[in-house]
Amino acid sequence: MADKQYNWSAIAKNPKFLELHHKKTTFLFGWWIFSTVFYFLLPLGAAYTPTLFKIQIIGRLNFGYLFALSQFFVSWGIAMYYAHVANKDFDRLTRELVDELK
């Protein structure tokens, strides 16, 4: 394994790698920014729009509580979606690239 020498800059210019790199970057940073913005809406909302957070939606359950709870489901959702895309697209592209280099 360690004996094999790779031409790294050639791999970096390989169209397969460029496609992988492009897809991954867009996906990862895009969803990271989304999740971060969504998370910071919670402390910001609690501090600056308390009236919104106090609105009771179902029985005693208010918007603020449901919004905080939704953070858990959104995080899990992003994680599952990422796993789906990575298993399907990123791993396939990686495998094809590795096969090409053999």
């Binding site: 394994m1 790779y6 790294w8 791999i11 790698f17 992988l20 990686t94 690239l97 280099l101």
Partner: peptide
């Protein structure tokens, strides 16, 4: 390349 693909 390594961090993206795990090659090597």
């Amino acid at each position: 390349v390594r961090q993206n693909t795990g090659i090597g």
